Amino acid sequence: MTEYKLVVVGAGGVGKSALTIQLIQNHFVDEYDPTIEDSYRKQVVIDGETCLLDILDTAGQEEYSAMRDQYMRTGEGFLCVFAINNTKSFEDIHHYREQIKRVKDSEDVPMVLVGNKCDLPSRTVDTKQAQDLARSYGIPFIETSAKTRQGVDDAFYTLVREIRKHKEKMSKDGKKKKKKSKTKCVIM
């Protein structure tokens, strides 16, 4: 069974824990209790493949930012979460993405942009803004509501699919490099 290491990042209060708990335990946590770091595991079937999701729910508070490099190193894919009623959390996505790329030393890291709290009427981040940002990053965008469960499975499952595509691409690139290195030079 394939294991996928997913990391949920975003500013404090955007609903990272609520999304994760909704996926794992099928219930909505409405009281806000700032996370330092929590880890969850769940076995699911995605596109006919049974897999184990190892999900790291991270601290959004700035005082825990020193811990970010460590979990970013171990993560295979990242859910970059903002709240649709919090423009600052949307603007912060850029910083999370840049930090992930720096730590992973790669421009090509599996990510999904997630606009959470889409059940709320007080939207300050337009869907088109988020779609445009995701398009500019070359990553999928999904709106979710941890409260109603809308888009929750889709967000995590899409990230797994992005990781699969990335692994497939990397193995193809690896095979191309191996083929090239088999060419021999004969000096007579």
Rank of each mutant, 00 (worst) to 15 (best):
V125E: 01
V125D: 01
D126Y: 06
D126H: 05
D126K: 04
D126A: 06
T127Q: 08
T127H: 11
K128S: 13
K128R: 10
Q129R: 12
Q129T: 12
Q129S: 12
A130F: 15
A130T: 08
A130N: 03
A130D: 03
L133K: 03
L133T: 05
L133D: 04
L133Q: 03
A134E: 02
A134G: 07
R135N: 14
R135P: 02
R135Y: 11
R135K: 11
S136Q: 13
S136P: 02
S136F: 09
Y137E: 06
Y137A: 06
Y137T: 06
G138S: 02
G138Y: 01
G138H: 02
I139S: 03
I142G: 02
I142P: 00
E143G: 03
T144V: 12
T144L: 06
S145N: 14
S145K: 10
K147L: 10
T148R: 09
R149L: 09
R149C: 14
R149I: 03
Q150E: 12
Q150F: 03
Q150L: 10
Q150M: 04
G151L: 05
G151I: 11
V152F: 14
V152D: 06
D153K: 12
D153F: 11
D153Y: 12
D154L: 08
D154P: 03
D154K: 10
A155D: 00
A155H: 01
A155N: 00
A155K: 00
F156N: 00
Y157D: 11
Y157C: 14
Y157K: 14
T158L: 06
T158D: 04
V160Y: 04
V160R: 02
R161N: 09
E162S: 08
E162M: 13
R164C: 08
R164Y: 02
K165T: 12
K165L: 04
K165D: 03
H166K: 10
H166L: 09
H166I: 07
H166Q: 08
K167H: 08
K167V: 02
K169M: 10
K169C: 13
M170E: 07
M170N: 07
K172R: 06
K172S: 10
K172D: 13
D173C: 05
D173M: 08
D173P: 02
G174R: 06
G174K: 04
K175P: 08
K176D: 15
K176F: 07
K176A: 10
K177G: 13
K177R: 07
K177W: 09
K178Y: 08
K178H: 11
K178R: 06
S181E: 15
K182S: 09
K182G: 11
K182V: 05
T183G: 12
T183Y: 03
T183V: 03
T183F: 01
T183I: 01
K184R: 07
C185S: 15
C185M: 14
V186H: 13
V186R: 03
V186E: 15
V186G: 15
I187S: 15
M188C: 14
M188V: 03
